[in-house]
């Protein structure tokens, strides 16, 4: 019991600290690749800190749903973070929720975010909510198929079990099923975290924004919570990808040395995945909204192929 609490506390600290760093890193890398100077990698921390020290304006038309939303977004993202193995194969909350709970808790956060967007009565909020729910709905089956491929291989939906099985079979990621599932999940990651070519995190143009449109009316500490929650969600999804497909550096025991090695490997893997995202973001243009289903359909078929090849290849 105390062990679970200590582990949770450690992982919580890690989540809260690494998530903004990762967002900042992606921003900086992207700027460098586009030969801009860009903000420093610590910018996301500064943003959150600044927003926490700002006054808040709440729309006159909003109800208590508007105020509940930031907490739900932040709470679900951090709770999900405790269910995912980060530096060792053991996640503190893996007993209390596996990969299905992860997907559904993130959906709970999104449910409230969409309600918060509609609560103000602003058309921007409605537009964002409508698009967000649409895209996430068609991303869901692809995500599940890819996850099932891994879960069926590990005979478990428990993320720690999945990581342990992955550690046991090194070079497994060379198997076609793993590669296809990774590709499918990568596309889903792009869609779920609102990145180009699905959404543009850096725009405030009404025709193109999705996530930004939903949170347009939020300000001050509420916005800080939502942004922080969003970056934690991004970290969680990226962790899911790197640790289930490339389990290097994960060990099952919990000593200072393994944590150190695990952390170093973990950060390196995240950096590599961030580079991939940055490459995709820089080399692609944003898709029209009605082209996004095509992309997600590709992800779905990739997931299905991954599944077929698990028991044929």
């Amino acid at each position: 019991m105390t062990e679970v609490l200590i582990n949770s506390a450690l992982q919580l600290v890690l989540l809260m600290l690494v998530a903004p760093l990762l967002s900042g890193m992606i921003k900086t890398l992207k700027a460098r690749l586009q030969t801009r100077r860009g903000p420093g990698i610590l910018q996301s921390y500064r943003d959150i800190f600044k927003l926490l020290r700002k006054g808040m304006v709440i729309p006159e038309t909003a109800s208590w749903i508007f105020s509940a939303t930031p907490y739900m977004v932040f709470g679900t993202a951090t709770l999900v973070g405790l269910m995912i193995p980060m530096t060792t194969t053991h996640a503190p909350f893996s007993l209390f929720g596996g990969v299905l709970a992860v997907v559904y808790l993130l959906a709970l956060g999104r449910f409230f975010l969409a309600l918060g967007g509609l609560d103000t009565g602003s058309s921007f909020g409605g537009l964002g909510s409508s698009r967000e729910m649409t895209i996430s709905a068609i991303a869901e089956p692809a995500m599940m198929l890819a996850i099932f491929t891994v879960a069926l291989g590990a005979n478990s939906t428990n993320l720690s079990e999945m990581a342990k099985v992955a550690v046991g079979q090194s070079w497994r990621f060379l198997a076609p099923s793993q590669m296809l599932a990774f590709a499918a999940l990568f596309i889903v990651l792009i869609a779920e975290t609102g990145r180009i070519p699905v959404d543009n995190p850096a725009t405030h143009l009404e025709l193109t924004m999705i996530h930004e449109a939903m949170v347009l009316e939020y300000s001050g500490p509420y916005l800080a919570l939502i942004e922080w929650g969003a970056s934690i969600k991004q970290l969680v999804l990226m962790t899911l990808l790197v640790n289930t497909f490339f389990p290097f550096g994960l060990s099952s025991d919990w000593t200072l040395q393994t944590i150190g090695v695990g952390l170093a490997f973990y950060l390196a893997k995240l950096l590599l995945l961030a580079c991939m995202i940055v490459l995709v973001e820089t080399t692609n243009a944003k898709l029209r909204l009605f082209r996004v289903p095509e992309l997600l359909m590709v992800a779905f078929i990739l997931g299905a192929l991954a599944l077929i090849s698990t028991f044929l290849f």
């Binding site: 060379l174 198997a175 076609p176 590669m179 296809l180 590709a183 990739l302 192929l305 090849s309 290849f313």
Partner: peptide, 9 residues
């Protein structure tokens, strides 16, 4: 098999 899968993709 990996390359075959890639071709299929």
């Amino acid at each position: 098999t990996l390359m075959a899968a890639l071709v299929l993709v």
